[in-house]
Structure formats: C-alpha cells, structure tokens
Design a protein around this nucleic acid. Structure first.
Lengths: 137, 137
DNA sequence: CTTTGTGCAAACGATTTGCAGGATG
DNA sequence: CATCCTGCAAATCGTTTGCACAAAG
C-alpha cells in the first residue's frame, strides 16, 4: 500500500506534475477501479467519507493527467466522458442496457490491418468497440 | 432531384414519421453531406439563406430520425454528438488534428472475431475506430 | 378533428473559467 | 519565493423541456 502510494508519487513527478493530495487521490482512485467512472463518479467516491476535493479540482486533475497520458478518456455514451487509468492499447465492450463498459485485452481480438487503408491518411492506431448485452441484463 | 425528394418523403412515411418541412430539411441535409455534422452545423446550414428551422426542432428531428434508425449518432469527440445518415455498418477514421471524421466501408477492414470473446456477454456487433492524421493536416 | 410537430425561452447537466488565497518544489 | 494548484461561484456549451400555437393525416 505504502509502496503503491510511493509509486504513484513517482509517476506523477516523472511526468512533471506537482503532487498534491487532490491529484494523488484522483489518480489513485482511478487506478483502483475498473469501471470507467465519470468525473462526478470520482468526486462522489472521494468525498464519500470526508470532503477531499472540489468539483473543479477533479476536472482539472483529470485534465492534467490526460495531458501527460496517465489517463485516457473513453467516449462511448452521449453526454458523458468517462476515464480510464489503463492507457495501454485495448478494446472496449459496452452493454446496450446498463451502459457498463468493460476492457477487452488487446490480444483477445485478431489484428486489423488498418495500414493498407488509404494513402490520404497517416494511420496511427485503432481500437474496436464491441456492443451487446452483459450478463446482468 | 424531385425523385430524391419523393424518396425522402416515402422513407419518412414508411417509418411512421410525419413529413414536415423542417424534418424533411434536416434529413435531406444529412443525406447530402458526408462530414458528420453536429446538430448545430445542420442548423447553421439550413438557416444560411433563410430561416428554416429552430434549434429545438433540429434537435427533435434528429431524435425522431434516430429513433427510427434513419440516422445514427457518432461519438468520437468530447462534448459533441455528430450525426450520420449512413446507417449501414461501417467504421470510422478520425483525424487527431482537425477532428474530421471519415467513413470506412465495412469491407475495407478484415473481420474481427468478436463472438468467441466471453460467455458473459451477448455480443451484437462491433466497429473499428481508426485514428491518425488526415491529408490536410 | 385528433394527433403530433414547431418555436420560443427557460431549464438543465456536464464542463470550464476567473480570481483570490494556499500549497508545492 | 516563484510557480502552480485549489476552491468557490459564475459562466459557458450542448441539449432538453414546457407550453401555446400551427400543421399533418
């Protein structure tokens, strides 16, 4: 635990971010959950027991973390931006009913040849979004 | 042209939608462009020469068209919902610089085997999002 | 004539911003 | 001690809603 905390501090520092309690808390929270929370989800979670961080700060922390590629945005739903501390390439599954999002490891899907597509574009990457219904629905 | 107009009228009727000038205009506009406009883009375009439709009506028309599967939402950018009259399965390319979105025909990419993924999900479909830089950037 | 759509303006929810005070390196 | 961050509240942006009037079938 202490080790993990230290690791987070080092990671933030190595990206040139100041380590503040709020920023630490946002990133730590995102690292320990896998449910792709919204900014508001994180805010609620952090302030559940005691006030930890304000709304504006959560937003700006997420922005800072995104700018240094420690978190990524996940856009699979209208009107909400979700966040993911898993920045390795991977795919997503989204449940049509409950909206739950799950990660799919990169290797679980066959590779798609996106480089022979068009000479008009410089292709840099891709990802697959799978949709369907999850077990709870 | 007249033929095309008639076709649009028939399509709307066959989906049980009343044919109003505004709804017609929104759908026709979406059919003749391929740039995945936002609701506001459409509004601007329609009212460019003469006032044709109000903001609320464009939104409600798009909602109606989406409800009967004549248009689909495209979510590849934070905060904006884009619309596409191409409802056939296809993939998307998005330019990292200018945000432009282009369609990729379904057959242009190799199939991904998404059905052997997990027994926890009932997989219904998928699509690939390719990102990179377009020729103008 | 019944039902549904339109337009306006106000309401809404998520995110951003301005600014004064506070913490970090 | 200079710089960057935080918190608050107000502002902004895209979208939705309530309601009175108008149009469609």
């Amino acid at each position: 635990m202490q080790q993990q905390a230290n690791h987070i501090v080092q990671t933030l520092k190595s990206k040139g971010l100041r380590v503040t309690p709020q920023r630490f808390a946002v990133y730590a929270n995102l690292l320990e959950r896998s449910d792709h929370p919204t900014a508001d989800d994180i805010l609620m979670d952090l302030n559940q027991t005691a006030p930890t961080s304000s709304q504006a700060t959560v937003y700006s922390s997420l922005q800072a973390l995104r700018d240094v590629s420690l978190v990524r945005e996940v856009l699979l739903e209208e009107g909400v931006c979700r966040y993911d501390a898993n920045v390795e390439p991977h795919h997503h599954f989204r449940c049509r009913c409950c909206g739950a999002i799950a990660d799919i490891p990169w290797d679980a899907l066959s590779d798609v040849d996106v480089h022979s597509l068009s000479t008009k574009w410089k292709v840099e990457g891709y990802e697959v979004t799978v949709h369907g219904v999850c077990d709870r629905c």
